[in-house]
Design a protein around this nucleic acid. Sequence first.
DNA 1: TCAAAAGTGTTAAGTTTACACCCATGA
DNA 2: TCATGGGTGTAAACTTAACACTTTTGA
Lengths: 212, 212
Amino acid sequence: MTNYSSYPRFFVSVDCVIFGFKDGKLKVLIHKRPYEPGLGEQSLIGGFVQRDENLENAVFRILKEFTGLDNVYIRQLAAFGEVERDPGERVISVVYYVLINFENYKEELTKEHNATWVDVNELPKLCFDHNEMVEKARKELGEDIKNTPVAGKLLPRYFTLTQLQTLHESIQGQLIDKRNFRRSISDKDYIQATDMIDKVMSRRGATLYEFK
Amino acid sequence: MTNYSSYPRFFVSVDCVIFGFKDGKLKVLIHKRPYEPGLGEQSLIGGFVQRDENLENAVFRILKEFTGLDNVYIRQLAAFGEVERDPGERVISVVYYVLINFENYKEELTKEHNATWVDVNELPKLCFDHNEMVEKARKELGEDIKNTPVAGKLLPRYFTLTQLQTLHESIQGQLIDKRNFRRSISDKDYIQATDMIDKVMSRRGATLYEFK
DNA sequence: TCAAAAGTGTTAAGTTTACACCCATGA
DNA sequence: TCATGGGTGTAAACTTAACACTTTTGA
């Protein structure tokens, strides 16, 4: 018979580093913690894992609640388990980064929760170890965007190469040469030109691209 | 006041993918599970996290018990949290990979625990999701060995370039050109030649190297 | 003397970096 | 007509990949 009962049990939470890209800036969604400990401090979006709910489903449930979105791109980063990381009780947190597309998330919901988007370069002090989580997520995203099509998760369906370049620049924290960038993009078979032209960002008009 | 008490608590375990390098092969330490569920099935080395013990300390405690070693190189891989991953009870497992050096671990202890080293390419079916854990660990190790000095954790203090190359080959699963490999090593400032010569592996003798 | 492992350079291909000007358009 | 963002090519530096023979020594 199974007998794990002599071992302790722990609260397990998931914390989400929710990234969005708006006005040429990489942003993170944070809110004021609505309960003790850390009441009123800035915090990542998170919540406790429920019985019969796996870690990813906990993330999806929370995202649905805060953004109205299903089918969000998430990726596990790490588990944080320091004994005193939450000063209230022992909580082990599994951290995910989340990429959302500003086109279709529900702004009402973030407002209801008093959540706000802050520039990842101007993050305030967050509660507990949350700043460390963001730092780790940003690093990981910096790797992923070079090697995988994750940029598509942060952009509208159709976008210009300038938008895409700005996104790369804001994640990597450095400027990129325009011609080199465009060459590197033309190598990627998961990004392709459409026959549409954007006339919003420039008088001349820019080719719109999409992720396959 | 803190009030998390309406949330469920979970057993949390750590599972260790313990790598060792012996006879030119990358090996993983496994044992037969000594309790239900999965009694008698092959399993990674793991255990439950205790109250007031952080995740890494749980790993170190278990490693001490199974190998007699302190100060082992460990690295967190991921948390596994599927609801039914352990058929007995809900257990959330945080997985670490561990690199140990065959020179100075305590073989008696592994014997006492009926643990054995198996070639990573000839792994039997392991219980639960443990095969998946090993696969992930091996991939991660494959990246890390290219970019960081982790190879030093698997080798004796002094080693020949042939040994180091064999280690790289067995982790990457492919043969490497000897001259290219040696050039790539001479770029790394954390690997340096000593003035010692190994006469065991060859008649001619090979320069011994060490990690700084 | 020979088997077995150690050691050693060069060339070609591919990748990455640096760099500056013309184009199309709407206001 | 001019301000704004869109679009384009080339050369040098660097990195990676492919490739084969000589050396040393103990048995």
